[in-house]
Simulated scan of single mutants.
Amino acid sequence: MAGQDLLHTQPRPMHWLATATAISAVVAAASFVQPPDAKATTSPVAAAGPRPAAAPDPGRVTFPVDCGPNRLDVVKKASGDLDGDGTTETVAVVRCHSQTGTPPSGVYVLAQPSGPKAAPRIVATLLDPARRRTVQTLTVGNGAISAALLGYSTLDVPRCCPDVHRSVKWQWKGGKFVQSELPAAMSTQGL
């Protein structure tokens, strides 16, 4: 008879429905209960202040690089406040598209003019492709731009195999970007 006494404890669909309804009522009631000093906001950004402008998009810039019939590729980009004015700039590394070899890189700093539809503009050229250097790495941090550059010591060096390596840094000083060498341990040969 002990088995028959426990038959009434078996859950039936009606028990589950009643439990679900009770839980829903508790959750709904809790959503209406607020502390007396609670305030509603329309967006989390409104409470935090104005949203910073997005970093300039290099895809919206016409770079001063002639690639002939080939397209121009943005191969690296990094963003940060480079001049300490509270706005975000973008550093873009571009080069002509090539199936073989290593075309030279150009390094440009982009700023976003005011106005939501305005295209970013180039505010500085850090490395002109005419210098025939390739950017291997690019980083932006603490207001500085650091890059590892590859190049060639003579015209006889095959374009596949750069033999000159140099690490440089650009930093905003006196109203312009100033280039400096990183320690010799990071550079095997000057460019």
Rank of each mutant, 00 (worst) to 15 (best):
C67Q: 04
D85Q: 07
P183I: 06
G68V: 06
H165F: 11
A25R: 10
P162A: 08
P52R: 09
R51Q: 13
Q171A: 10
V107R: 00
S153I: 03
G86E: 04
L182F: 11
L82G: 05
A28D: 12
M1T: 00
A2C: 03
L7H: 08
T88N: 03
Y108V: 06
G84P: 06
D81Q: 07
T137S: 08
A20G: 03
M186E: 13
L149K: 12
T134L: 07
T19Y: 04
L6T: 09
L155S: 15
D83G: 10
P35G: 07
G190Q: 14
D37P: 03
A2E: 14
A22L: 15
A38R: 11
L6I: 12
Q179P: 00
F177E: 01
S24G: 14
R51V: 14
T88Y: 10
P50G: 05
V61Y: 07
G174Y: 07
K169T: 03
A130Y: 03
P52Q: 05
L155K: 12
E181Q: 10
V109C: 08
K76I: 00
V65D: 11
V109R: 02
D156W: 09
D37V: 14
I122R: 00
V157L: 11
F177I: 01
N142T: 09
D83F: 06
P36C: 00
G84H: 07
H97E: 13
F63P: 02
P44I: 10
P103W: 05
V33D: 14
D163H: 12
P35Y: 05
T188I: 02
V140Q: 02
H15E: 07
A48C: 06
K39Q: 13
T90E: 04
P36V: 05
A54R: 15
G115P: 04
P104C: 02
A20R: 00
V75F: 03
G151I: 04
R166W: 06
A25K: 05
S98M: 12
L182Y: 10
G101F: 09
R132I: 10
C160T: 15
K176Q: 11
P162F: 05
V75Q: 03
R132W: 04
D73C: 00
W170M: 01
K117Q: 13
V140G: 02
Q4A: 14
L17E: 12
A119K: 15
P116H: 02
G84F: 03
P52I: 04
G101R: 14
P36H: 08
K173M: 04
Q4D: 15
R71T: 11
G49H: 07
V107T: 03
T19V: 13
P11R: 13
I122P: 02
A130D: 09
R131Y: 14
